[in-house]
């Protein structure tokens, strides 16, 4: 379930000036696709820098340090610093849930938690609120997560989350390892009736 929101998978298609996200573009016969041109790599790095500058990503004190998709992207794209001024927004940490925490400082607004909650778990607890830079992930009607009456505490959102924004309580720096394989297992089992571990 891809949405083309982060723009990090933008590719060039021969004959078109427009860059398109690979995740939402259907391949076609004879299509010539460039995936790693100098221009694309430059754009990707800048987009990544925008993400880092947008919220307070402090790898050194993060539960996902060493197991973070955002951190890994930075390493892979050769991002040795962020060339934009950090915005340092003041954001909340929601620790009201019995099992899980949500740290908005580390959220990249990818929406994976929302989609897994709606379309895999079917609980429809997570959602977006606000717009632009004021966008936030919320629970139910923008309530503390712990007061949600729809959350089943399944933990799928935690494992879908690419960063340390969603985490299991009790984990400390570098201890939160996400297991996306479990989510894929569930979806494959449900949709294809194949129980592949």
């Amino acid at each position: 379930m891809d949405v083309g929101a982060c723009r990090l998978c933008l590719v060039e298609i021969a004959g078109s000036n427009k860059l398109v996200p690979a995740c939402t573009t259907q391949v076609a016969d004879g299509m010539v696709v460039a995936t790693t041109s100098e221009r694309l790599q430059r754009y990707r790095r800048l987009l990544l820098e925008l993400l880092f500058a947008e919220r307070n990503h402090v790898c050194a004190v993060c539960v996902s340090n060493g197991h973070c998709e955002l951190q890994a992207l930075a390493t892979n794209l050769g991002m040795d610093h962020v060339s934009f001024p950090y915005t340092f927004p003041k954001l909340e940490v929601d620790l009201t849930h019995r099992l899980f925490g949500m740290d908005h400082n580390r959220c990249v607004l990818c929406g994976r938690c929302v989609r897994v909650c709606w379309y895999v778990e079917g609980a429809a607890t997570k959602n977006f609120s606000g717009r632009g830079a004021g966008s936030r992930i919320i629970s139910d009607l923008n309530q503390p997560w712990g007061e949600s009456r729809t959350c089943t505490a399944c933990g799928k959102c935690v494992h879908a989350c690419p960063t340390g924004a969603l985490f299991e309580k009790g984990t400390t720096v570098g201890e939160m390892q996400k297991d996306r394989g479990k989510l894929e297992y569930i979806v494959t089992a449900r949709e294809k009736k194949q129980w592949i571990v």
Partner: peptide
């Protein structure tokens, strides 16, 4: 910069899906 917040309980719109 004061953030603009608008709580919304509507499901994610179709464009947020693939």
């Amino acid at each position: 910069r004061p953030p603009t917040r608008r709580a919304s309980a509507s499901p994610p719109s179709a464009t947020w899906r693939a």
